[in-house]
Amino acid sequence: MSLDREAVSKIAHLARIEVPESRLDGLAGELDNIINWVEQLAEVNTDNVEPMTRVGDRKMPMRDDVVTDGEKQADVTANAPVSQDGFYLVPKVVE
């Protein structure tokens, strides 16, 4: 498996990070190095090993069905770069 220019532009789109054309090859090289390095895991025998899904052995706590939060429109929009009347604004989405 090799992480080339095309793969970089695909994942850069998935991650919504604009990568200038001129950076694609360089970045592909850097990422490919890292990927080649992590591929050494292939040599570990993991037959019959369950992937780790939690650290420790706790059970998931659950909250009660009680309204304890909200009613803080000013707080949740206080840091918004662009907002109006308590809405966040984003470039118009055309469906």
Binding site: A15, L27, I35, L41, V44, V49, P51
Partner: peptide, 30 residues
């Protein structure tokens, strides 16, 4: 940060998830 976000997106992406992410979580268990 960009490098790591891209690596992360890559190892989770279709076709690579098992080879990288699941493999890593198995080794982590070991």
């Amino acid at each position: 940060v960009q490098r790591r976000v891209l690596i992360g997106a890559y190892v989770l992406s279709a076709g690579y998830y098992d080879a990288y992410y699941i493999k890593a979580q198995k080794v982590r268990a070991l």
